[in-house]
């Protein structure tokens, strides 16, 4: 793996003097509030489905996930999500909304190249890595768990 080049210390110092600092605490708070609001909304939907829709938790949970994905895709299409993402940062990127947004945004972006070779081929341009490494890590952890069980009898 190649290492990123670094500027000489003298230039690094000048750059630092003029670069506005990233407001880490403010960003954390915004992420906490933004992500918290989204999760509270999803949790409330889960509660409503279970309480009034008479669904079990196993039945209601996927519906809530689909609802969040639908809402994200809708907000992405309306051009609102990227503005919310700029404010809430990781708060919206970490939940499934981040994944849904990356797929919807990529598909929208490549619309001009056609349905199959444009939107279709590029839909997982950003989210593909999440799927690949998600499956690889899920497989590795499960394999390790099985191996330990086998050894311990």
């Amino acid at each position: 793996m190649r290492v990123k080049p670094q500027p000489e210390p003298w230039y690094q110092m000048i750059v630092q003097r003029h670069t506005p600092p990233r407001r880490v605490w403010c960003n954390c708070l915004c992420a906490f509030i933004g992500g918290g609001l989204l999760c509270s909304l999803a949790q409330s939907a889960l509660f409503v489905l279970m309480e009034f829709g008479r669904l079990t938790r196993q039945e209601a949970a996927p519906l809530v996930l689909l609802g969040v994905i639908l809402l994200t895709a809708l907000l992405t299409g309306l051009g609102i999500y990227d503005r919310l993402g700029q404010k809430a940062g990781a708060g919206l990127a970490v939940p499934i909304s981040g994944f849904a947004n990356s797929v919807a945004a990529s598909m929208m972006e490549h619309q001009s190249e056609g349905l199959v070779l444009g939107s279709g081929c590029n839909s997982f341009k950003l989210a593909g890595a999440v799927i690949v490494f998600g499956i690889v890590s899920a497989f590795s952890v499960t394999a390790l768990k099985g191996l330990i069980r086998l050894l311990l009898g």
């Binding site: 506005p20 940062g89 990356s102 990529s106």
Partner: peptide, 13 residues
Amino acid sequence: RYPNEYGCQKPPH
């Protein structure tokens, strides 16, 4: 960079 509607956070610089 990224698709236009991708909601990543841009740094202030």
